[in-house]
Nucleic acid binder design. Structure first.
Lengths: 119, 119, 119, 119
DNA sequence: GTGGTCTAGACCACC
DNA sequence: GTGGTCTAGACCACA
C-alpha cells in the first residue's frame, strides 16, 4: 500500500479498513488483523496501526477484546456509510458548489466530466 | 473572518485575496493592503499574512515594489482563474467522483442538490 | 455471564466465585468446578479461569487437592467478607467521598439515591 | 506530581487539567500550557501530555489553534461537571450500592464514615 | 499471542 | 515557538 503524503497515514489506514468492511471482506463481528499484523502488512509501525484502531474504536466501528484482538462492531457498515455520506453532503459538496460558483463553472460541465470519467 | 481548521490559514488568506482580485475590489496594478494591515484586518499574525503574500508572489499574482508595498500583477485575474480551474478539474472533481462511486451516490442526486443549494 | 471491559475478566470471575461461596451455593470444604468446567460455563479461556483460581488460592479462599480439584477453604466466607469490606472501606469509600467533594455532591443526595435504588 | 500506577498517566493528566479548569486557574478561552511545557512540568514525555490533550479535545473541553497552542473551550466547566457527574451517578454509585448490599453494609454506616472523613 | 501505555527522538507544517 | 505525525523500542497486564 502506498500512502499519500498530504493525509496522515493513520487516517489512510482507517479508509483502508473501512473499505474492507464495506465490501465485507471483514464482516461484522469478525476479528480483524492485530495491530502488529496490520503494521507489517502495510509496512508501518504498529503504533501507527494502533492509532487507526483507536480512531475507529472511538467511532464505534470496532471494539477490542482484551488479549484477543479487535472486532468489527455490529452495525459497522451502516455507521461507516453514514459517516462518509454525512461528510460528503455536508462538507465536500457545499465546498465544491461554492468553488463552482466562484469560478463560473456550470453544473452541466461537471455532469459532462462525470460521464467522461466513467468511460 | 473565521478560519476553518482543516486548511492552513495562510492558504485561506490567499483565497481571500484572490476573491478580492476576482471581484475587482483589488484591481490589477493597484496596491493591496500591507502585511501589517492585512494581519490586523483578518486578526492573524503578520508572519502568517506574509506567508500568503510570498505564496501569491511565487504564483506571479502580485509583485512588490521596494518600500511601497505589494501590487496586483497585470493579468492576475486570468492567472487566478486558471490556477483554480486547474485545481478544480484535476484534483477536486476526480476525488469527488471517486467518493461518489464508493458511496453509491448518483450524479443525478448531486445535480438535485446543486439546484436546491442555488435557491 | 457478561463481562465489563474496565475490569480484568479473571477478577470478575473471582467475584463470581466469591458470590457463590457467600450465598453458600459453594459451601466450605466442598469441591468447586474444575478450571475447564468453569471455563466452558462462563465462556472464557481455561487459562483465564485458572488465573482466577490462582488468585483465590493466594488469598487462602480455596485450596487444591492433587488430582481431585479445588475446594472451598474452611473460613472462606469470613475471609471473603473481610477482604471485600477492607477494600470497600479503605479504597472504594474514600475515593467516592473525594469525588463527591470535588463535584459538590452532598451525602444527603447520595442517601436519597440509595433509597430510590432500593425500591 | 506523583502518578498512581493503576491508572494510565495520560488519564491522570486529564484529571489534573480538569481540576485546573474547574477551579478556574485555567479559565475558559485561555491558553493552557503547551504539550512540551506540561510534559516537563509533570515530568512526563511530551507524547504522553499530548495524548491527554487529544483526549480532552475529543471531549470538546479544549481546542487547538495551529502553531499557537491549546485553549480551554467555551462551556468547558459545565462539560466537565456533566461528564464527571454522569460517571458518578451512573457508574460509581450503582456499583457502590451493589457492593453494600452484597456485604450487608447499611447506608447509615456509610453516612457515619462520611461524617468522620470530613473532620 | 493480544492490546495498551510510555519513552525517546525525529521530522514536518504552521504561526 | 506551536501542534501533529511517525518510528523504534520497551514494558505490562491480560487471554
Amino acid at each position: 500500500m502506498d500512502f499519500k503524503s498530504n493525509k496522515p497515514i493513520y487516517l489512510q489506514i482507517v479508509d483502508f479498513c473501512f473499505q474492507k468492511m464495506l465490501i465485507q471482506e471483514w464482516p461484522e463481528e469478525d476479528r480483524i488483523p492485530s495491530v502488529r499484523e496490520l503494521g507489517s502488512m502495510l509496512q508501518v509501525n504498529p503504533n501507527t496501526a494502533m492509532r487507526a484502531f483507536e480512531y475507529m474504536q472511538a467511532e464505534n466501528v470496532i471494539y477490542s477484546k482484551r488479549g484477543m484482538g479487535y472486532f468489527v462492531a455490529e452495525g459497522a457498515r451502516k455507521l461507516i456509510l453514514n459517516l462518509q455520506k454525512k461528510d460528503f453532503f455536508e462538507e465536500t459538496l457545499p465546498e465544491t458548489f461554492n468553488t463552482m460558483k466562484l469560478l463560473g463553472i456550470s453544473i452541466d460541465e461537471v455532469v459532462e466530466r462525470y460521464k467522461q470519467s466513467g468511460e
